[in-house]
């Protein structure tokens, strides 16, 4: 009975909601949603903190730092902060707030954590190379019909499907 509130929204309705948020983002700001950009800002500002000169001279970091601009005071960082709050509100309303390591019973906690870290690292790396993640490149890109969006989307889901068999233990 306690799982009564644990139900998720109808996927189509949730999709509609997400679509409306995305549309609002386009209408208000002219850009879609994103997430990996905010993570990059965190990394960039971290590197900048550690060694400003190094960041300044690096081809990669120097693109995102300039003297009058703080990488953390950016649109995407605030947006991702909002995601954190929005997710929390929704989780609280649906009674889904609890510290939990989600995994398949077939694998150990340790393995799940390593998988998460490796997966995260791959995703982080790929999102930089591909100029955006599922939300920034694929979802927002598809909404504006950008070729990059469709190509990235197909590459992500195609690869995931292709590799699914090898990692089935993790999830099933």
């Amino acid at each position: 009975m306690e799982n009564k509130g644990n139900k998720y929204m109808n996927p189509y309705l949730a999709g509609l909601l997400l679509g409306v948020v995305l549309l609002a983002s386009f209408y208000l700001t002219g850009r879609g949603l994103g997430a990996s950009g905010a993570m990059k800002s965190v990394v960039v500002s971290g590197v900048d903190k550690v060694s400003h000169d190094y960041a300044e001279n690096s081809h990669f970091y120097s693109k995102y730092i300039s003297n009058d601009q703080k990488p953390l005071r950016s649109w995407l960082v605030l947006e991702v902060f909002g995601v954190l709050i929005g997710g929390f509100i929704s989780g609280a309303l649906s009674g889904r707030l609890n510290l939990k390591l989600e995994k398949s019973p077939k694998i150990t906690n340790r393995k799940r954590i390593w998988m998460a870290i490796i997966g995260g690292a791959l995703f982080g790396f790929g999102s930089q190379l591909g100029r955006g993640c599922t939300s920034g490149a694929a979802l927002s890109g598809m909404a504006v019909m950008s070729l990059a969006g469709y190509v990235t989307m197909m590459a992500i889901f195609g690869t995931a499907f292709a590799l699914a068999y090898f990692f089935r233990k993790n999830w099933i």
Binding site: S36, S127, G132, C133, S140, G141
Partner: peptide
Amino acid sequence: KMVAGGCS
């Protein structure tokens, strides 16, 4: 004059 955007 485009918006700088995307999520990269």
